[in-house]
Amino acid sequence: MEKVLFGDNQFFAVNHLSDEKSRAQSIRFKDDASIIRVLDQAISLGIDTFMCTTHDRIANICDHIRKNPADYNGFKIYPCMPYAHKYANAVTELGIVGTIKQYVPGNIFGTFAKGGLAYLNKDFIKLMQLLIDAEMKMFAGIQTPVIFIQNVLVDMILGLKMYRVFAEFDAYIRKKYNSEPGYITMNMPALLDALNSVGIENPIICSSINKIGFRMSGGKEMYEKYLKEREFRPIAMQVLAAGALRPKEAIEYLGQFPKIESVLFGASSKPHIQETKSLIESCL
């Protein structure tokens, strides 16, 4: 993995510090061209990996990349699935079965020729694979060397102690997509223990890592211990603690953990991207 991963929260009105700022972002990135412009600036500064959620609008960005292969030679996307709000809003409105019906491609009764939902009942793994394929469709023809599950889902499976689901995800991503599976979490120490318990060794784990312990559940000390002593491939996110920290002190803090392979960050202006990228490269 490269040291610098460019994120997408700024494009989709995700701002953990301010609902107001998040609306301002949604106005600024109203059309896809404005997203592509910032992405191109990041590329011009030497950033080649875009880590993004499987938001509907990413499909348009992927179309653009496919249509202009010369401009995106060597460009990689790390998809993060699913875009949780899409499903969460659907579950509120349609219930769980209704949501599956809406999002599993094709007619679910056709997909499982024998007995439809009754068959599905016995084969959750098949359902998971169908949903992964549905989410991955938009990335056809684009390099996706690492494929992540979003923290909402990772942490839900973790809390429910359904660790075997991780093993199934891991195996499917490797087999079907020839990619490395990754996990985003707000509970890194507990997740690493869980993954190890089902035989997943040295996993890629993306979690909040920052000086003030923001969204580091299990506690900052535990995170630091795991970063120093355990075997895994950490990606640091929320390094600025949603803006509470200044970039320099935030990234210097990461420097004490040589194990951190990459830093995920998002920014909307070229100078900002440049500044953060240089800091990461000098500290990591």
Binding site: H16, L17, S18, V152, D155, M156, G159, M186, N187, A190, I212, F214, R215, S217, G218, A241, A242, G243, A244
Partner: peptide, 15 residues
């Protein structure tokens, strides 16, 4: 005042 300074600390985070 921001939530980063005001959030209640928890042992496990979901949503």
């Amino acid at each position: 005042k921001y939530i980063t300074d005001l959030a209640l600390p928890v042992g496990f985070y979901l949503r």
